[in-house]
């Protein structure tokens, strides 16, 4: 009985993480089972049914080309989530690499990479992204890469700080004394112990990347129609703001719900994994 109480107590202490995790899993399931959830083709136009308010036939209404908004949102979740995850994968790899090399080797490597971080941070991020989108052209793939290439700096600093504090621990010195290579020491001995801030940062990072992707798509600089994305449905929302509120309300809610789920999970993870970090907050 006592153990059960303790268990419940622990669980409720991490309520945000639990709720966040549940929502994140739900969203992933929705994205994966898209064709099962809707009978409409997300790109299927029907001019006779354009700009219809929500009804039984079209749960969330239709857009200016008569496409079913519900089905576009369900399919859009695939694109938004995959852009978010891929972008974060890229930025995490860069962040870990830069942070580990700078922290472990110190000296000129540290100088070089940390000045690089300063430089990237001094260019306002959204302008940087905008510039790259214009020069490379907007596409799902480019948007993933560009977001990944511009959002690794915070993680690099976090990993560097962790590595700095770990690299003179006895077990690392022992590994070095027994002849392990630098790469092996970093990968096998240091990084596994530096993962806590990485998990937290990845979770917040997905929220941030989805926010940037939807913002870009909203402005016509991200995912290009006819591919559905929550952001580009909102573009129609803005164009038809005087007549079709459902084009603004629902896709925005989807973005909001996704971001809040990942932020909840991130917040909870941070409390569990790394109590030192609580209080500081990363901007999405």
């Amino acid at each position: 009985m006592k153990i059960l109480l303790k268990y419940i107590k622990l669980l409720s202490a991490n309520k945000p993480a639990l709720i966040g995790a549940a929502l994140v899993v739900c969203l992933a399931l929705i994205a994966l089972s898209a064709p099962l959830l809707t009978g409409y083709d997300p790109a299927g136009q029907s001019m006779a049914e354009k700009l219809l308010p929500p009804s039984r036939a079209h749960l969330l209404g239709t857009d200016e080309l008569g496409r079913d908004v519900f089905s576009r949102m369900i399919y859009g979740s695939r694109i938004s989530l995959s852009v978010g995850l891929a972008a974060v994968a890229i930025s995490t790899l860069i962040g870990i690499f830069v942070g580990a090399v700078a922290g472990y080797f110190g000296g000129w490597a540290d100088q070089f990479f940390m000045r690089l971080v300063d430089i990237v941070l001094s260019v306002p991020a959204l302008f940087f992204i905008l510039m790259l989108v214009v020069f490379l052209g907007p596409s799902i793939f480019n948007v993933m890469v560009i977001i990944g290439l511009t959002t690794w700096t915070d993680l690099a600093r976090l990993v560097r700080a962790e590595v700095l504090s770990l690299k003179s621990r006895e077990y690392v010195l022992a590994a070095r004394a027994s002849g392990a290579s630098h790469a092996r020491i970093i990968i096998r001995h240091i990084l596994p112990n530096a993962m806590a801030p990485v998990f937290v940062s990845v979770t917040f990072g997905v929220a941030g990347a989805i926010l940037i992707e939807s913002g870009l798509s909203f402005l016509g600089l991200g995912v290009q129609p006819p591919d559905p994305s929550w952001g580009n449905i909102l573009t129609s929302g803005k164009d038809y703001i005087e007549t079709a509120w459902w084009l603004t309300a629902f896709p925005g809610m989807a973005i909001f719900a996704t971001i809040i789920s990942y932020n909840l999970l991130g917040e909870g993870l941070r409390d569990i994994l790394d109590p030192r970090l609580s209080g500081s907050k990363e901007r999405g």
Binding site: I241, A249, N263
Partner: peptide
């Protein structure tokens, strides 16, 4: 503040336009 933190600013802008403008 947690909720405020997670609201996409462009969506908030659209909602405000919808409520107060339209």
């Amino acid at each position: 503040s947690f909720i405020g933190f997670s609201v996409p600013s462009f969506w908030l802008a659209l909602l405000l336009m919808l409520f107060f403008g339209v």
